[in-house]
Amino acid sequence: MIINHPLLGPRDAAEFVYLGDAALIDRPDPEAENADEQFYEYGYLRDNPAGAHQELWYHEQGDRSWLVVTRDTLTHEITGVKLARDEAKKRGRNK
């Protein structure tokens, strides 16, 4: 596969390490009342879509950036690649 890195251009997926669902960005608030429930879901429950999937890839043999890649799990078509840092901020993680 080829991942079109937003800063570096197309790179072979072999340079990357795959983590999984980009929902891992959304670490729950440990102070929340049902934090244990939320962390259980965060840690163990994943969607498994047949189709577009936002997922985390780490450019270990590159610039060490974490990316959010939107990949179709049926066709491997990649329709979007963003820096995970920007995506995390967009999702309200500013600390």
Binding site: L56, Y58, W66, L83, A84, R85, K89, N94
Partner: peptide
Amino acid sequence: AVLVFRRLEFARQCLWPGL
């Protein structure tokens, strides 16, 4: 060594990007 570095980068970029 490699895995911890990867995790720290994950924490830095994805969990606490404001630090």
